[in-house]
């Protein structure tokens, strides 16, 4: 690891910056996003969903609802926004993508596979004995997996340290941390949010998968953290919220959050739909841990294909471009 000769001097005045006038809207919102770019990401999202179904079928059950809901965000990240090299997963020059929610592992393996980290065949080893793809993602098992998940509420704190480390090294790379709406219940998440705001970690982008789902039921019924963007803003963050299943909206938001100037950490609240893309799973009783019967998998693949074809055929929404 190359450490710069002279570490940058810590900022003279730590502490959250004084509130500024609302920052100018970033370029991406105004600049029309190239439709081909969006179409390419949508194709990737489709393959990430397919990769997720392949893994979940090995188990017959699991976190398939989450993998389907987050596929659009992961497609934007892993095929557009993140600087990553599958041949050099530990490259000093990479953006750091951290999955705080270990149970979303199958979604991450699906995305890493789409990004050419793994051969397609390996997906079928998901959560089997001696696989590189354990059910909960762990740094010690899988190239490209930056942190160990499983115990929720750890990710954002680690992201702070990595963001600090990158700054010390003079790197202009970003840390992306994907967390869940459930993790907003953990005090550790808000401790970390305060630290990020105080230390002005403007190279940190958090993404919250707001699928309104937790283990015991709907997040908003159980422990409502709304209004979430206001809370992050009060902690010194730049916060945006969008439909997390609209590729164009997610892309625009993530471009904006990377480009926007201002000494603040950034967060995107992505409102997603559990089971997105497979209508009978979207409509099923919302469950953290979903069971899909043997005979349903072929139908799931077929439905996914149809909904993707319908999406591609539909005109792009104006407001997202």
């Amino acid at each position: 690891m190359s450490t710069p000769q002279t570490p940058p001097v810590p900022e003279a005045s730590a502490g959250p910056p004084a509130p500024q006038a609302a920052s100018a809207p970033a370029s991406a919102r105004d600049t029309a996003l190239d439709p081909e770019r969006i179409a390419r990401i949508q194709e990737a999202a489709y393959r990430i969903r397919r990769n997720s179904l392949i893994q979940a079928e090995v188990q017959g059950q699991g976190y398939i609802g989450q993998a389907l809901d987050i596929a659009d965000v992961l497609a934007v990240l892993f095929t557009d926004q993140l600087r990553l090299d599958p041949l050099d997963p530990e490259s000093e020059d990479r953006d750091r993508f951290q999955l705080s929610i270990g149970h979303y592992a199958l979604a991450l393996y699906a995305a890493l596979t789409e990004a050419k980290f793994f051969p397609l065949e390996e997906l079928e080893t998901y959560a089997t004995d001696d696989s590189r793809f354990p059910m909960s993602s762990m740094r010690t098992y899988t190239p490209g997996v930056e942190i160990s998940g499983g115990s929720l509420g750890h990710g954002l704190g680690i992201a702070n340290g990595v963001a600090m480390g990158l700054k010390r090294k003079g790197s202009d790379r970003f840390v992306y941390n994907l967390l869940s709406d459930g993790e907003l219940g953990e005090g550790s998440t808000w401790e970390a949010a305060a630290v990020a705001g105080h230390h002005r970690l403007d190279n940190l982008i958090a993404i919250v998968d707001f699928n309104d789902q937790q283990a015991d039921g709907k997040s908003t019924d159980m422990l409502s953290m709304e209004p979430v963007t206001d809370k992050f803003e009060a902690f010194g963050w730049i916060a945006r919220r969008c439909d997390g299943n609209d590729v164009a909206a997610v892309l625009a938001a993530l471009i904006e959050l990377r480009e926007i100037q201002g000494p603040r950490p950034r967060v995107l609240i992505a409102d997603t739909r559990l089971g997105k893309g497979v209508d009978f799973l979207e409509d099923r009783e919302k469950l953290h841990f979903m069971r899909v019967e043997k005979e349903e998998w072929a139908r799931a693949h077929e439905t996914l294909k149809q909904s993707h074809e319908a999406l591609v055929a539909s005109p792009q929404k104006d407001d997202a471009r």
Binding site: V58, Q61, E124, T128, D129, D130, S131, A215, F289, R291
Partner: peptide
């Protein structure tokens, strides 16, 4: 993979 004997799987929240 699919041609070999299936390996045992972890199961998770529901076992």
């Amino acid at each position: 993979m699919s041609t070999t004997t299936p390996k045992l799987t972890s199961g998770a929240m529901s076992v």
